[in-house]
């Protein structure tokens, strides 16, 4: 199984939906709330987003080597080879 790591905001409903998606599919994931993180973590998250050519738009979801920015269950599923539904 590919590793799932997410950058999220505690205020963002799409981040909540993304977490819910992985929970419901029983897929383990790690996440960091950018707005609750310490200064150093925030800086590294920002650098990570920028290095992928993205802005800090959340959720920022890393699935293995791939990145999906935004709530996109279809993309999450296809990257994890899940059947839809």
């Amino acid at each position: 199984m590919k590793k799932v790591v997410m950058y999220t905001l505690s205020t963002c409903p799409w981040c909540m939906r993304a977490k819910k998606f992985f929970r419901e599919k029983d897929i383990p994931f790690e996440y960091i709330d950018y707005d609750k993180a310490d200064e150093g973590t925030r800086r590294s998250i920002r650098e990570d987003c920028l290095s992928h050519g993205e802005e800090m738009s959340f959720p920022f979801v890393k699935i293995g080597e791939d990145v999906v920015v935004g709530y996109n269950p279809q993309k999450y599923s296809s990257l994890l080879n899940l059947s839809e539904g």
Partner: peptide, 8 residues
Amino acid sequence: YCPCQGLT
């Protein structure tokens, strides 16, 4: 601020 974008 936008609740879904990160402040710097």
